[in-house]
Design a protein around this nucleic acid. Structure first.
Lengths: 331, 331
DNA sequence: CTGAAAGCGCTAACAG
DNA sequence: CTGTTAGCGCTTTCAG
C-alpha cells in the first residue's frame, strides 16, 4: 500500500480511503489511486484490514462427520444447500470457511470462533448432538443450525417443515384415489420421523386406516432400502402407493418395483422427498417434496447475522412444495 | 493474550512462546500458561498471527460456475472430492476457504490470492477455460487444477487417467464375452472423450469392430440420457453391453433397459464411471470405474504445496480401479 | 530462560 | 479534502 501511496504522491491513509470508497476524498484523486491499484494488481490485505477494523467477514460452514462411518455424505441434497449457502454468503460479501468437525466433538468448532477465524458459523449435515449445540450457544458462539426445531433449544435452527411435507406428499396420493399407501424410511427419529407423522396425519384426516403393516423400516441411508422393499413385497400385502422418506430410498424402491413387474405409477404411485437431482432423471421421474434451499440459505444467513449482532432470532420452519412428476398418477 | 500474561505473571512474549511450543521455555511455565489458556478458552487470534508471521495457512477451493446455467453441480462425484480435500487440508493444518467464481472470470480468483486471503488454491469442477488458468499461472498465483492434462499447460493439474479407465471398463466387458458393446455419453470433448477413446482402443486391441452405430451421444449432464437410450433401442441395433461415461447416465440407461424388458446384466451388461454413491444402490448395483479421490486430494495438496514453494510440479494422472458389481456378468 | 520493543499492513481519530 | 499518529493482537530479534 505504501508503494501505491508513493506512486500516487499521497499518504497511505488517502489510499485506504480511496480504496474503501470514503466520501471525503476528491473524486479525481480516487480515480487515480484506483487506476494505480488496478495496474499494479494491488488488493488490500484482507487479514490486516480485519485486524485493524476489528471486523471479520468470514463465516464458517461446519460439516460434522462421524469418525466411525466411512467418509460420506449420505445426502446428495447436502451439496445443494452448500452451494446455495456459498452463493448467499458470497452475495453478502462474506468469505466462507469450510470446516469438517468430528460430530462427537462439536465443541471443537468453538475454537474457530475464539481464534477469530470466523465471525459465526452455520452447521449443516447429520447432527444429533443437541446438547453440544446448546453448549456452543451457551458459550456465546454465534451459530445457526440447519435442521429441525427441538425443545429446549438455545440456538437458532432453520429447517423445513417435515411434518407438513409428509402431509402434502400423502395427501397428494390420497387425492389421486390411492387408498393403501405404504411408508418406507425411518420412523423413529430425526426428520424422517416427522415426515412419517405427517403421513399418519394425512391418512387419519382422510379417514383412512393407519396400519403398521404398511410401515417399511429402512435406514435413512438407503443402503438396505432395496432389501426392505423386497421383504415388504414378499409379504404380499396389497398396496397402491408408496411414500418414501427420501428420494434415494424412493428411487431404489422403484427399481425393486420395476424389477418385480409392478408398474410405476400404474400399479404403485411413488412420492419421494428432497427433490434430489437424480429424481428428475429416475425412471420414471419422481414426484417429490422440494425443500426451498435457496430460501433456506438466505434465511440461515439472516439468522446468523442476527445472532452475530447479539440477537436471538426465532427458529424457523420453511414450507416445502410438492413437485409432481410421472411417478404419481390418478387412478 | 495480555490477560493470560498477567494471570500467569509473565509477558506476552512468554505466553506466545509457550503456546507455540518454543523450546526455550521452562516446561513448568509452559504448563501453567497452557492451563490458563484452556481455562479461559483463549485461542491465539489466527489473523494477527498470520499478519505478524507472514504465513498464511488458509487454502482456497474454487468452484467455477456458469452464470447461464442454473446453479447446480452436475457431478455428485464432486461433493466427494470436496470432502476428501477438506480432510486432507484439515489434516495438514490448513483452513479451507470455499469460493464460487464465475467460470468466465476465473481471473477474479487472483484477488483471493492478492488480498492474502489464501496462500494458494485448488480449482475443481467444470472448467474449460484453459487459457484463463494459464493466465492465472503466469500471474504467479499458486493454483492446481483437478482435471485432464492438456498441451501447453502452465499450471499443474491432477486428474485420473480417463483413457485407461475407458480401456478397463471396456476390457472387462470383453473379457466377460460381450461382443457388441455400445457407448453412451459425450465423445467430443473433455474427460468423456478420453473415456470414449479408451473404449475404442479396447475394442480394437481385441479385434472387435468399432462401429459408429454403437455410439450413443448423450450430454454429460444426464438430462437427456434416457431419451438417447430410448432412441438407440428404437433403432433395433443388437447389443449385449453398454459402457456409460458416467454413473448417472448408466443408471438412467439401466432404467430405460429395465422398462423395455431388457434384463441387466443377463441381456445387457452395464459399466458406469465415477463410483458415485448411488451406483452402489442402483438396480442392479452398478459396475463402475472408481477414481481414487482420497489419493487425488492428497496429491492435489502436495502439488499445491510445491507450487507455493515456488516449484513447478509435473501434472499427474492417477490410475482408476474397476469395481465389479451385479450389473456385469459373464455370458 | 524471559522481558522490552519493534512492527506485520492496515484504518480511524484527530488535526490541519 | 488530506496527512499524522496510534494502535488492532501477535511474534521475534535483541538484550538481559
Amino acid at each position: 500500500m505504501l508503494d501505491i501511496a508513493k506512486l500516487a504522491g499521497v499518504s497511505t491513509a488517502t489510499v485506504s480511503r480511496a480504496l474503501n470508497g470514503s466520501e471525503s476524498i476528491r473524486p479525481e484523486t480516487r480515480e487515480r489511486i484506483m487506476a494505480l491499484a488496478q495496474a499494479h494488481q494491488y488488493t488490500v490485505h484482507a487479514g490486516a484490514k480485519n485486524l485493524r477494523s476489528g471486523e471479520n467477514r468470514t463465516l464458517g460452514l461446519v460439516i460434522p462427520f462421524r469418525a466411525d462411518l466411512p467418509m460420506q455424505v449420505t445426502d446428495p441434497f447436502f451439496l445443494s444447500i452448500l452451494g446455495h449457502l456459498a452463493d448467499a454468503m458470497t452475495a453478502a460479501q462474506y468469505d466462507l470457511l469450510l470446516s469438517r468437525v468430528d460430530a462427537d466433538h462439536l465443541d471443537e468448532c468453538a475454537a474457530l470462533y475464539d481464534s477469530g477465524r470466523v465471525a459465526g458459523m452455520v452447521m449443516v449435515g447429520q447432527w444429533d448432538h443437541h446438547d453440544q449445540l446448546n453448549a456452543l450457544a451457551k458459550r456465546r458462539v454465534p451459530v445457526v443450525v440447519w435442521g429441525a426445531m427441538l425443545p429446549d433449544q438455545l440456538y437458532c435452527s432453520v429447517g423445513s417443515d417435515n411434518f407438513n411435507g409428509g402431509l402434502q406428499a400423502t395427501s397428494h396420493l390420497i387425492q389421486q384415489g390411492r387408498k393403501r399407501i405404504a411408508y418406507i424410511g425411518d420412523f423413529r427419529s430425526g426428520e424422517a420421523k416427522l415426515r412419517f407423522e405427517g403421513y399418519c396425519q394425512a391418512l387419519q384426516s382422510h379417514g383412512l386406516e393407519v396400519n403398521a403393516d404398511m410401515f417399511i423400516l429402512s435406514p435413512y441411508t438407503p443402503l438396505e432400502s432395496q432389501e426392505a422393499m423386497h421383504a415388504f413385497c414378499d409379504k404380499g400385502i396389497a398396496f397402491d402407493a408408496l411414500f418414501a422418506a427420501s428420494d434415494l430410498i424412493a428411487i431404489n424402491a422403484m427399481g425393486v418395483l420395476n424389477a418385480r413387474g409392478l408398474k410405476v405409477p400404474d400399479d404403485i404411485s411413488v412420492v419421494g422427498y428432497d427433490d434430489v437431482d437424480a429424481s428428475r432423471h429416475s425412471f420414471p421421474p419422481l414426484s417429490t417434496i422440494r425443500q426451498p434451499l435457496d430460501l433456506a440459505a438466505r434465511v440461515l444467513l439472516e439468522c446468523l447475522q442476527e445472532v452475530m449482532r447479539g440477537g436471538q432470532p426465532a427458529s424457523r420452519q420453511l414450507n416445502s412444495d410438492l413437485v409432481v412428476r410421472a411417478s404419481t398418477q390418478s387412478l
